[in-house]
Design a binder for these strands. Structure first.
Lengths: 233, 233
DNA sequence: GTGACTTTGTGCGTTCGTTCACAATGGGGT
DNA sequence: ACCCCATTGTGAACGAACGCACAAAGTCAC
């Protein structure tokens, strides 16, 4: 295979850090690109792609430049090629085995979420502590009891755990999955998890986002301070 | 009422920006504080609170200093008082009326999420386009048809819309809620919404978080580039 | 009342991220 | 073969956020 872009990237460049802010945006670009690809677009300029992703075009170009030099001056980026490069950078060209612990409404929503399977995430287990749910079939999977947590993680090679349990159970579940070898945790429970060095945790909190919106909404309406007078020394 | 902290804050300080990064952390502090309050803790130091919230203590102090001078040197912060101040700053002392559009598993999870009601968010409507769901009762609310979107938003004074529809429907729903007067949108659909000036959108994307985890997981395992050789000029 | 001790609030240097603006460069027309 | 044009990739200026380290300020014991 002759490389299409000969100077694609040195080992050094990629091994050293891609900025965290860039990493957080790559999935957004990837989604925009998939959309373009589905519509049959073969080539896209940074301006167009940036618009589709909702960012500034200079930022997009700088972000992509951290991966390598994958565009063609005067033309733009080849959609399919860029999809592949971003996917590879994010690690989506390999399969990741995921377990979802906690099968309430949120766990069900996650289990049925199409965005996982299509991006290299395989849900290997759906676990819950509630015996009345165990055995139920959801999105092609049977709910297992949390007793089997360690077994499933080890047998299936789970490396990412998604915690969708009530807050009170989350830390205990987290400790168990980490002890069983999981090194990445996505936490939906409204608690701060503590984990040993080397384990990554990301948190998604439904109510925090609403609170941030409320703050800005209040700002628009004139702020919370109208009743307060200036009290200066 | 004699102010407990006489020089609490000038109008100017608060009217001007609290950094966005700080705003995003305030809800985390608030949650940690509620936890301490529930356990009967009356006073907390920046060190302790920072640990509970999972941040560095200097950062915590600087964040709080943007709201005003609410601590006591040599002692710490009075938990209840700080809860009140943060709540007020975030706008949680007033009620916000929310509508949830899209009643799949995710919409149900959101409707039943206790973190809303307890923080000043009142869910005024649950709407879906699927006639077979309309009429169902979920968490004390009856699902309405999206035909009634505009009516509900106007009659109930909804100011925040939560979009939990499939991706394909999201932009159309967004346009309608904005036209009906909503100025803040929380979007769970995996699309970039475009809205007019003055409308805030925040996005929560379940699969993006997983992709970010995958990236770091791959890093730990040695990176994606082992197969690549250095190709230098 | 005084002094030792604790903890806040913040000035400052550093690091990280964004944006501008333009030189470098490939493509395509003639 | 040459030139023009569009678009990338990036240096440099700017700005936001972080974290250290310490002076200011309050408490508590005696």
């Amino acid at each position: 295979m002759t490389p299409r872009h000969p100077n694609a990237r040195t080992l050094k460049e990629s091994a050293k850090g891609i900025p965290e802010a860039t990493v957080a945006r790559l999935p957004v670009y990837l989604r925009a690109l998939q959309g373009l690809k589905d519509r049959g677009v073969a080539t896209v300029s940074s301006e167009e792609l940036a618009a589709a992703a909702g960012v500034n075009s200079a930022k997009l170009r700088k972000d992509l430049s951290h991966l390598g030099s994958y565009g063609t001056r005067g033309v733009g980026y080849e959609v399919e090629y860029l999809v592949y490069q971003i996917s590879r950078e994010l690690g989506l060209t390999q399969d990741w085995v995921v377990a979802i612990i906690g099968v309430g409404n949120l766990g069900r929503a996650l289990a049925g979420y199409g965005g996982f399977a299509s991006r290299g995430f395989r849900v290997a287990g759906l676990l819950d502590a509630d015996a009345s749910i165990v055995g139920e079939r959801i999105s092609g999977l049977t709910v297992e009891h949390t007793d089997k947590l360690e077994t499933i993680i080890k047998d299936q090679g789970v490396s990412i755990a998604v915690i969708a349990t009530p807050a009170a159970a989350a830390q205990a579940v987290c400790d168990r999955v980490v002890a069983a070898g999981v090194t990445s945790v996505l936490n939906f429970a409204p608690v701060v998890l503590s984990v040993p060095e080397g384990v990554d945790v990301r948190k998604v909190d439904l109510s925090i986002e609403l609170q941030i919106l409320a703050f800005h909404e209040q700002r628009k309406a004139g702020g919370p301070h109208e009743e307060y007078i200036e009290v200066h020394p």
